[in-house]
Simulated scan of single mutants.
Amino acid sequence: MRGRAELLLSHAPVFQGAEAADLEPLAALAVFRTLARGEHLFREGDAVDTVYLVSSGSVRVYRLARGGTRELTLHVEGPRQLVAGVAAFQSRAEAPASAVALQTPTEVLCLPADAVRERVYGTPALARAVIAYFARRQAELLARVEGLVFSELGERLAGYLLEHAAEPHLLPTNSELAALLGTVPELVSRKLGEFYRLNLIHLERRRVRVLDRVELTRLARGNREG
């Protein structure tokens, strides 16, 4: 288990540039946890005492609107990604959102938050890596907010598909994808069907494969002419 933990930590973007020796003490504390689809890793308001890193599968991080009738998906984290990690670097923090597994199985690596903070604060290479990672994630979040406000659904969906174009990707449900893209399930279904008919993607049993990366890139940029 320790070897798997060391490998995962060394490839995680949050620790990019850190030395293996800096990560070994954290790997020694690691525990792996397996989740089924729909199982919560944590809920909004829970005490943050653990740092979670996705090993396999994916985790959706979301917030409930007032009254709990609607959900806003903030982001979906895949392998090697940190799950709502900023709160873990605040002492006595509460989870600002909820996190739920999107696939069965989804495996996450769990580390004691206090041990991670102590190690990062006391290791310059780790501190630099974590600060750089959070700066990148803030830029990504701002870009996502901008996309939700100013772009059309086709652009947002094309961008999502391109993010997962490296290999065939198991799509979330239309409801989950709609929450992620800031729309409703019916429009997601219609737009996926359109992309399928245009031969931009291959879609079978929720598994999607990008066929025309060039055209999807053009759509994601909002360029509909030549």
Rank of each mutant, 00 (worst) to 15 (best):
residue 133 Y to Q: 10
residue 151 S to D: 08
residue 55 S to K: 15
residue 156 R to Q: 05
residue 152 E to G: 03
residue 12 A to K: 08
residue 190 R to D: 00
residue 110 C to D: 05
residue 63 R to D: 07
residue 57 G to A: 14
residue 206 R to F: 05
residue 115 A to M: 10
residue 115 A to D: 04
residue 102 L to Y: 11
residue 178 A to F: 01
residue 51 V to Y: 11
residue 225 E to G: 13
residue 96 P to H: 11
residue 16 Q to D: 14
residue 55 S to D: 15
residue 85 G to F: 08
residue 134 F to D: 10
residue 155 E to W: 01
residue 206 R to N: 01
residue 223 N to P: 06
residue 16 Q to G: 12
residue 72 L to W: 14
residue 198 L to V: 03
residue 76 V to Y: 01
residue 23 L to T: 07
residue 62 Y to W: 09
residue 37 R to D: 07
residue 168 P to K: 09
residue 128 R to C: 06
residue 125 A to F: 10
residue 87 A to Y: 07
residue 215 E to F: 14
residue 141 L to W: 12
residue 134 F to R: 11
residue 57 G to L: 14
residue 65 A to N: 09
residue 22 D to M: 00
residue 194 E to G: 10
residue 148 L to Q: 11
residue 19 E to C: 15
residue 207 R to V: 09
residue 204 E to F: 08
residue 14 V to P: 01
residue 191 K to F: 02
residue 86 V to W: 12
residue 1 M to H: 12
residue 57 G to F: 12
residue 26 L to F: 07
residue 219 L to W: 06
residue 3 G to M: 05
residue 177 L to P: 06
residue 52 Y to A: 15
residue 60 R to A: 11
residue 154 G to W: 02
residue 60 R to M: 10
residue 37 R to S: 09
residue 55 S to G: 14
residue 108 V to H: 06
residue 95 A to K: 14
residue 97 A to C: 10
residue 72 L to H: 14
residue 60 R to W: 05
residue 224 R to T: 14
residue 141 L to M: 13
residue 61 V to S: 01
residue 90 Q to F: 14
residue 144 R to P: 04
residue 74 L to Y: 02
residue 73 T to Q: 04
residue 55 S to N: 15
residue 217 T to Y: 05
residue 51 V to C: 12
residue 35 L to S: 03
residue 136 R to E: 13
residue 89 F to E: 15
residue 2 R to P: 03
residue 18 A to V: 08
residue 84 A to V: 12
residue 65 A to G: 14
residue 116 V to D: 11
residue 183 T to S: 13
residue 131 I to A: 13
residue 119 R to G: 01
residue 195 F to D: 02
residue 4 R to F: 08
residue 139 A to Y: 06
residue 197 R to K: 13
residue 11 H to T: 09
residue 38 G to I: 08
residue 40 H to V: 12
residue 190 R to P: 04
residue 222 G to M: 08
residue 223 N to E: 12
residue 223 N to H: 13
residue 173 T to L: 04
residue 5 A to P: 00
residue 112 P to N: 07
residue 28 A to T: 07
residue 24 E to K: 09
residue 134 F to C: 02
residue 93 A to D: 13
residue 175 S to K: 07
residue 188 V to A: 08
residue 48 V to F: 06
residue 48 V to K: 09
residue 71 E to C: 11
residue 202 H to N: 10
residue 55 S to H: 15
residue 6 E to P: 00
residue 113 A to G: 05
residue 13 P to C: 01
residue 162 L to Q: 01
residue 73 T to S: 11
residue 6 E to H: 04
residue 167 E to D: 09
residue 209 R to Q: 07
residue 121 Y to C: 06
residue 129 A to R: 02
residue 14 V to M: 04
residue 117 R to P: 00
residue 178 A to Y: 02
residue 113 A to N: 05
residue 102 L to I: 13
residue 151 S to N: 08
residue 119 R to N: 07
residue 98 S to Y: 02
residue 215 E to L: 14
residue 117 R to A: 11
residue 52 Y to W: 15
residue 85 G to K: 10
residue 5 A to N: 07
residue 151 S to A: 05
residue 96 P to V: 14
residue 25 P to S: 15
residue 105 P to R: 07
residue 1 M to Q: 14
residue 119 R to L: 02
residue 136 R to M: 09
residue 206 R to E: 00
residue 68 G to V: 12
residue 220 A to K: 03
residue 48 V to Y: 06
residue 181 L to I: 02
residue 215 E to K: 13
residue 191 K to Q: 05
residue 178 A to V: 09
residue 67 G to W: 13
residue 118 E to Y: 06
residue 13 P to R: 09
residue 35 L to N: 04
residue 182 G to D: 01
residue 139 A to C: 03
